[in-house]
Simulated assay, not measured.
Amino acid sequence: MKLKAVAVPVLVVAGGMAVIAATGVWALSGGLYGCTRADEELAPTLASLSILDAHPSRTQPRHERHSGCDEDDGFAYAGQYYRLTTSRADVLAFYREAAAKDGWRLESASSSPSPAPGGLAVDTSALCFEKPVAGTTAHLAVWFPGDLGDSADDFGLEVTASHDGTAWC
Results as ranks from 00 to 15, higher is better:
residue 142 V to K: 08
residue 157 L to P: 01
residue 58 R to M: 12
residue 120 L to T: 10
residue 51 I to M: 05
residue 82 Y to P: 02
residue 74 G to K: 00
residue 147 D to I: 09
residue 17 M to T: 11
residue 162 S to G: 05
residue 151 S to H: 09
residue 91 V to G: 04
residue 128 C to R: 00
residue 100 A to F: 15
residue 59 T to P: 00
residue 23 T to L: 15
residue 42 L to P: 02
residue 45 T to H: 06
residue 112 S to M: 14
residue 26 W to Q: 11
residue 65 R to E: 06
residue 24 G to A: 11
residue 60 Q to D: 04
residue 53 D to T: 04
residue 19 V to M: 14
residue 8 V to A: 07
residue 28 L to K: 01
residue 54 A to K: 04
residue 57 S to K: 10
residue 157 L to E: 13
residue 71 E to G: 02
residue 58 R to I: 06
residue 126 A to M: 04
residue 14 A to M: 02
residue 88 R to G: 02
residue 127 L to N: 10
residue 167 A to L: 09
residue 77 Y to P: 00
residue 33 Y to R: 12
residue 128 C to V: 06
residue 169 C to F: 12
residue 54 A to G: 07
residue 138 A to M: 04
residue 98 A to Q: 11
residue 167 A to Y: 02
residue 111 S to Q: 11
residue 13 V to K: 00
residue 40 E to C: 01
residue 51 I to D: 07
residue 88 R to C: 00
residue 101 K to T: 14
residue 21 A to H: 10
residue 51 I to R: 02
residue 116 A to T: 11
residue 17 M to R: 13
residue 53 D to H: 06
residue 162 S to I: 00
residue 72 D to K: 00
residue 158 E to N: 06
residue 123 D to I: 08
residue 88 R to Q: 11
residue 154 D to L: 12
residue 48 S to W: 00
residue 128 C to Y: 01
residue 64 E to H: 15
residue 3 L to R: 12
residue 147 D to F: 12
residue 105 R to K: 15
residue 53 D to I: 05
residue 98 A to N: 07
residue 73 D to E: 00
residue 32 L to E: 08
residue 83 R to T: 11
residue 163 H to P: 00
residue 25 V to G: 02
residue 167 A to Q: 01
residue 95 Y to S: 03
residue 12 V to S: 03
residue 14 A to G: 08
residue 104 W to A: 01
residue 49 L to S: 10
residue 92 L to F: 13
residue 26 W to I: 04
residue 80 Q to L: 06
residue 134 A to D: 13
residue 4 K to D: 14
residue 23 T to A: 14
residue 133 V to F: 08
residue 167 A to T: 06
residue 168 W to S: 13
residue 159 V to L: 11
residue 112 S to N: 12
residue 112 S to A: 08
residue 165 G to S: 07
residue 23 T to W: 15
residue 114 S to A: 15
residue 131 K to C: 07
residue 142 V to P: 03
residue 118 G to K: 09
residue 87 S to M: 08
residue 67 S to I: 01
residue 95 Y to L: 09
residue 32 L to W: 07
residue 107 E to A: 14
residue 120 L to V: 14
residue 141 A to D: 05
residue 69 C to D: 05
residue 33 Y to M: 14
residue 100 A to Q: 14
residue 85 T to C: 09
residue 145 P to E: 12
residue 116 A to M: 14
residue 96 R to C: 01
residue 72 D to A: 06
residue 24 G to Y: 03
residue 56 P to K: 03
residue 149 G to N: 03
residue 149 G to Q: 01
residue 157 L to F: 09
residue 45 T to N: 02
residue 89 A to L: 15
residue 136 T to M: 09
residue 77 Y to N: 03
residue 81 Y to I: 04
residue 97 E to F: 14
residue 39 D to N: 05
residue 64 E to Y: 15
residue 10 V to K: 02
residue 1 M to D: 13
residue 115 P to H: 04
